[in-house]
Every structure is written in C-alpha cells, then in structure tokens.
Nucleic acid binder design. Structure first.
Lengths: 361, 361
DNA sequence: GATATCTACTAAACCGGTTCAGTTGTTAAT
DNA sequence: ATTAACAACTGAACCGGTTTAGTAGATATC
C-alpha cells in the first residue's frame, strides 16, 4: 500500500507535522531533522497523495482550458495543439495537469466553467478566443476562478493578459502586397465578436490607410472554410474586386483560394492570397500559401506560467507581451495583375459559390 | 463559504452518514428521510467537494489522455479534436473531466502516465495510437491504471478495446481505383510501429491481392508531410511507378499530391490520390482530395463510456466494434492513364524531392 | 536573576466526505 | 412468548495531508 507521512514520521521518529514542514520546504524544523526526514521519505518511496494534499490545501494542482470551438475547426487549426504543448512544458515543471474541455453545444461553455469551479477541479483557467464584451470575465469573477486571458479584453478585466500582437503580421502582409504593386487588397476577417478577429481587421485597415489605399474591401466570415468561400465570392463579385486578399486564418485562405481557382482565376496571377497561422498543410497547397507564422507554443508556455505565478502570489499583475508573428512568403502572392492596353480583363467569377466538388485542375 | 454535509445534516436533523447515504442513492435511509435530506441540500445549495469526495472514495473523477504526437501533426489531424469532443459528451453526463497531456519529448510519455497514476489524478486512461508490442500496456498494469485501448493491441492486453476497423475504408479506396482501371496502385503507409499504420497497409495489400494485383508498390512514411513527400518520390521514381497512391493519412496525401504536381504530374490525370481521415481542408485542395471518412467523435464517446463502465464494474469485458469508415470520392481520383499507341509516356519525375516552393499553378 | 524572544518540535484540529460498527425499534418466524 | 432478521438510524473512524496552538529549551536583553 501507499506510504503516508505517518509512515515517514514513525520511521524518522518525528511528528507528522514535522514531516509536512520538511517535505514542503517550510520553516519549523532544523536542517538536520529536515535532511533525515527527506532521506527516510525517499527510502520508503513516499509520494504525496494529491487527493489528501488537495483537500488540506484547498488546491487542485490543475489548470483548466475550455475550448468552445467546433471540433472541425480545431482539426485544421495549428494553434491549439501547439498551445497545449506549450502549456504542458510549464505544467510538467510544476506538477500541475491540464483539464481540457471542448464545449461546442449551446450553453456548454458556461456549464464547463461551472463544472471546473464547483468541483474545485482546477485552480485557475486560461481564457482563449477572447470576445468583445466577453461574458466569461464576469462569470469567472462570480466563480472566483483565477484566470489569464490571451490578449487584453476590450472590457474591464481583473485578469492578467498574455498578448501576441497580430498587428505586425497583418501589417507585414499588406506591406508585402503593396510592394508587389497591389492596390485593391481585400480582407476576409474572422468573426468580429472575437478580439483577434477585430484586431486583424483593424491592422489591415491601418496598414491600408497608411499606404493611402481604400479599406472598403472587407467581408466578415467565421474562420470556417465555407465562410471563407462565401466571403471570397462576395469580394470577387465586386466591380472593383481585389487583386489580393488577406485572410484572417489559413483555412479560409485555403478555401478562398480554392474557390477563386474554380472560378477560373489564377493564384497568384489574378489574385494573391495570404493566410494566418502557418498550418502544416499550407506549404503543400497548390500554390503553397503565403501566411503569417505565430508561436503558439511559446504563448501556451507563457500563459501557464502567468497563471501559476498568479496562483502562488508572485505575479507582478502586469500584462505580458510576446514576440509578434512574422510573414512567411510562399507562392500564393505575386505581382499585381497589370491592366495593360489590349489585354482582356481578368476572368469574372460566375454565379453563386458552391461548396461542392470543384472542377479538376 | 461552501455548504458541507454537516450543514445539511444539522438542518435536516440527521447524521452526516444519513446525508451521505441519501445524496448518493445508497440504502440505509427511509424514503421520507431521503426526500427531506435532498430537499434541504437543494435549499442550502449544497455542492459536493470533489476533493473531499475523492479522498474518501479514492477516486479522481477524471479520465486521462496522453497524446504522444508532435503538435504539428495534431494541428492537421481532424481525429483528436473530434475524438476529444466525443469523450466530452460522455464525461459531461457523468461529472468526470478529461486530463490531457501532450507528451512529445523523449521519455515524456512514460513520465506523463506516471504523473497521472502517482498523484491519483485520473481513474483510468484511454490509450490511442496503439503500437506494435506497445510498452504502455505493461506500464499501465504496473501503475494499476485501468485503461481502454483504441483498437485491439497485437500483444496480450487485459484492457477492453474499442475498435474501428480501417480495413473497409482502405478496401473501398482500392476497389474504387481498380474500378477506374488502375493496376499499379501504391500505398504510402504510416509508421509501421503503429497498429493502425500496419492495418491500413495490410488492408491495401489484401484488397490488391484480391484484385490479382501486385503488392510491392509500398513505401513507409511517418504520417508527416515531409515523410509523405519522400515516400511519394520513392514510388514515383520506380520504372513501374504507380498510377494511383493510397495514403495512410490526409496530410501525406496532401504533400504527396503537391509533390507530384511539382514534378509535372497531373492529379488525377497521371496520378490518382486518396487520403485518410477527411480533414476539413481536404475538400479545398486543388483538386479536392478523395479520402476516407471516419467518426472520431463516436469513437471518443464509446471509448470514454467503455472506460467508465470498467471503472464502475459494469463493463462486459468484451471489445466494442464501431461502424467502419467510408470512402468519400472527390476529384483527386480519376480513370487510369491510358498507354495508347503513339502517346508519349507520362512525364517522369526529376531528381530528388525538394520540400521548397513548388511551381505555380 | 528575571523576563522576553526565538527555535524546534508536538498533538490535535481541521479539510469534507464515506463507511463501519453499533443501537434501537419493528416485524416475521418458530 | 421468544428469537432472529431487518431497516433506519447513529457516532466515530478513516482517508492523508496541512496548519494551529501549545510546550520546552536555549539564548538574548534588561
């Protein structure tokens, strides 16, 4: 059976209390006694019972992550696996574990947070996909759950944020396209309820304004592939349609690129395309996608550390700013089409977009 | 402060023991007393302390999942998000949570399992990516951790398995290609240390043999995109190179298809391609990928249920067999190229494969 | 010398629940 | 009428750890 601190106390000839102080690096025992206790504990093969320790210390030794996204989206998003792997590297150093909940049904997200809090299953949570006026801030305050947010919410939040500014990446993409001679540069944005959906749009608009270009070529989508198709179709139907599109994520760039190709447009000859996130498959697209590369693993590591620091009272209270994402140029971006004399205009897309099987290459 | 069963006992005028029996549906209290206790507990807003409950009952009320894959692979694999979402639906009904660990460093996987077991953090684990002579079986027995395996391991295992036979999907892909007139059908397999890597290869070989076709066009890869490129290059270099390739996963099919295109081959004109897993992005490839669609959410749901049944002693001890995957035909497969008289042979791939930027479309 | 402070320990309370051994009352069987 | 069995409760032990209040001894200060 499991060795308890009573066994260690008996074998070392001290009280349980002394053993607890010794094993937890607390003052209250002499160095000699502490060493003896640690030695005996090691010899007996003592391992803490996290359940007993948790009850005594009112801690769970776990952090929570609730992901309220359709699993289909998760399966193409390189962010979460790397983010989780980053969290893991921090947790491994602190004997904490990650409690993950994927909550997609209506109301499931709130239920998941309540479940984590009510049962005392986690000591704090990491809040991803922060939204405009995010209701989770208030909920977590009500539940008295410590948290760290990814990026600074736009509403008052008592929780420290760990931020990675996507402004630079989007700005680099727009600048890259401007340098290639593009004037009509569109943006297919993610859901504008998300802070990161908005900030990417705002970064695009700012970079466009700085270059003296129009910022009306915007279509909102929802980070999904069908959403990317619909938004792309909308932009390509315009008389002043774009010769380049900056997408808010890789999946929409992929489906948008594919849609344009089915409409007879050449990428990047007629339309240049950039994505966001540098998903593994994007370098194998035809053509390989120009995209923006982030570092979700670092983000996960930093977020977990910030939350642990908060829990143990060593957090400075300040937000953490991580290194900005960088543009990764591949073959989906090229010089703007030249409207030369005698040249027919680029093919105009036909009809409504269809999500079904496109024509063969 | 939190309401405890002592508070409920006092308010209901009974002992703590009676409250425990009543709240847990145990015999030992009359119906009238039970109703009174339940009523009082509800009025007081009593919620169980999982920490106290866990210490008393020696349970964690959590299941563990250790994923020993590179996060890059996870970011393109639709399996795990959907699988985890499926687990979640079962756990939500039972007030259990999922403890997730992504372990990629050498030795990290074993450390992760030990961490889960030693701290009593989980009551059991779900074992995915089962390998040939999987060392985890013995480890889990040593750690006395109950488990459920995805698919039946090839070594003796005391744990129930929940299986989804990939034979039918691969067979359907081969049959589909045979019906299209293909004779030289290759297979780019995943790592043969994995049971699912082997079974997909064996299914391909069996379907080929049944069609009276040769089974030598095999190249092993590791489920990664670069691995898919290298294996594809190997097959395409052969004098008897395949006119179709059945890949063991979508990412390798994507990168293999892309590689073939950079070598001047037309997909599916010169080479038909099938994948596995139906990743979200595959329908937006150029051309959209023919693939095999599985139901990982159902798998997750069933695996979690099997493990919970095992934990509560209601498991029959038998393996569970889930519905087989199905072939999803898109545009990456077409009729075999016809070696007509006077027609030049299809272009031969040139030199070593390069993972860098392919030519534009 | 007397008093105050500090260190190093102790036993016991506490965390909030589950289970066990015991008591009492009721009912059924002999 | 007596005995046995059962149901409905009880208080206490237990789970394995952390913290608190207390004690004794040593040292420093007045």
């Amino acid at each position: 059976m499991a060795v308890t601190i009573s066994d260690v106390a008996q074998a070392a000839g001290v009280s349980k209390g002394a053993v607890s102080y010794a094993l937890n690096g607390q003052p209250g025992v002499s160095d000699a006694t502490r060493d003896r206790i640690l030695q005996v504990a090691k010899e007996l093969g003592w391992k803490p019972s996290l359940r007993a320790k948790g009850l005594s210390s009112a801690k769970a030794y776990a952090l929570g992550l609730v992901v309220a996204r359709d699993p289909k989206l998760l399966g193409t998003d390189p962010f979460f696996p790397a983010f989780i792997a980053g969290i893991e590297t921090t947790l491994a150093e602190h004997d904490y574990t990650l409690v993950l909940s994927v909550a997609t049904a209506p109301g499931a997200e709130e239920r998941a947070y309540r479940k984590l809090a009510d049962g005392g299953r986690v000591d704090g949570v990491i809040l991803t996909d922060v939204r405009h006026n995010d209701s989770r801030i208030g909920l977590l305050r009500e539940l008295k759950l410590p948290a760290v947010t990814l990026n600074r919410p736009d509403a008052e939040s008592p929780f420290p944020a760990v931020s990675m500014d996507d402004t630079d990446g989007i700005t680099a993409a727009v600048d890259h396209l401007v340098a290639l001679g593009h004037v009509r540069i569109g943006h297919v944005g993610g859901a504008q309820e998300y802070i990161h959906g908005r900030s990417r749009r705002e970064a695009w608009a700012a970079a466009m304004a700085k270059a003296g270009l129009a910022t009306d070529l915007f279509a909102e989508a929802d980070f999904t592939a069908p959403g990317g198709v619909a938004a792309t179709a909308e932009l390509l139907r315009r008389a002043d349609r774009p010769t380049a599109i900056v997408y808010a994520n890789d999946l929409m760039a992929t489906s948008g690129q594919s849609y344009a190709q089915t409409q007879g447009l050449s990428v990047p000859g007629d339309l240049s395309v950039t994505g966001y996130d540098n998903a593994e498959f994007t370098q194998y697209l035809n053509p390989p996608l120009t995209t923006i590369s982030t570092d979700p693993m670092l983000w996960g590591r930093a977020a977990a550390q910030a939350l642990l620091n908060q829990l143990n009272g060593t957090h400075s209270g300040e937000d953490t700013q991580l290194q900005a994402p960088v543009l990764l140029v591949r073959a989906s971006t090229g010089p703007a089409p030249v409207p030369a004399a005698g040249r027919s205009s680029p093919p105009r897309p036909s009809g409504q977009p269809r999500a079904s099987s496109p024509a063969t290459s």
